[in-house]
């Protein structure tokens, strides 16, 4: 029986990754980063933005898209280093600071999100309102 349960559990865990068409992003694993970044919103995967964007965001936490998200120096440094390490790699021209302003994000959501769904989510940064596996890194359920 134990074996069956284990196999089933493995299937449940592995299946979304196996069927993903590229829209899966490793969730934040670092404990401090996860705790702090998920206090007000979901901790967005580091690979959604390049290092230059994360650096800018982390330098301006006291005005974090209109909210005061300031942290002590030590924690700020720790999180910045984590994001730099795990960020999207490659060349970016004028990288956005908001994930929701990235071109692919806009294209991906433009015709898919109904007014009702938008209202329910409150904000486009509330991934979990529609992508139930978002905090595990899965965005394929659309």
């Amino acid at each position: 029986m134990k074996k069956v349960i284990l196999t089933l559990a493995l299937l449940v865990v592995a299946a979304p990754a196996a069927f993903a068409d590229g829209k899966s992003y490793a969730p934040i694993k670092d404990k401090i980063t996860k705790t702090e970044c998920s206090a007000c919103h979901m901790a967005f995967p580091a690979r959604l933005l390049p290092a230059s964007s994360w650096k800018k965001i982390m330098l301006n936490l006291s005005d974090h898209f209109g909210e005061d998200a300031s942290l002590d120096e030590e924690t700020t440094k720790h999180i910045t280093n984590y994001f730099i390490k795990k960020s999207a790699k490659g060349k970016f021209r004028n990288p956005a600071l908001r994930i929701t302003e990235l071109r692919w994000f806009i294209n991906e959501h433009n015709h898919e999100v109904s007014r009702k769904a938008k209202k329910k989510a409150g904000t486009m940064s509330n991934c979990k309102a529609c992508h139930r596996g978002a905090d595990r890194g899965y965005f394929d359920d659309d």
Partner: peptide, 12 residues
């Protein structure tokens, strides 16, 4: 009411 669950502006 402080007895109730609140919501952040980002929806949490």
């Amino acid at each position: 009411s402080p007895l109730k669950t609140g919501k952040t502006r980002a929806g949490k």
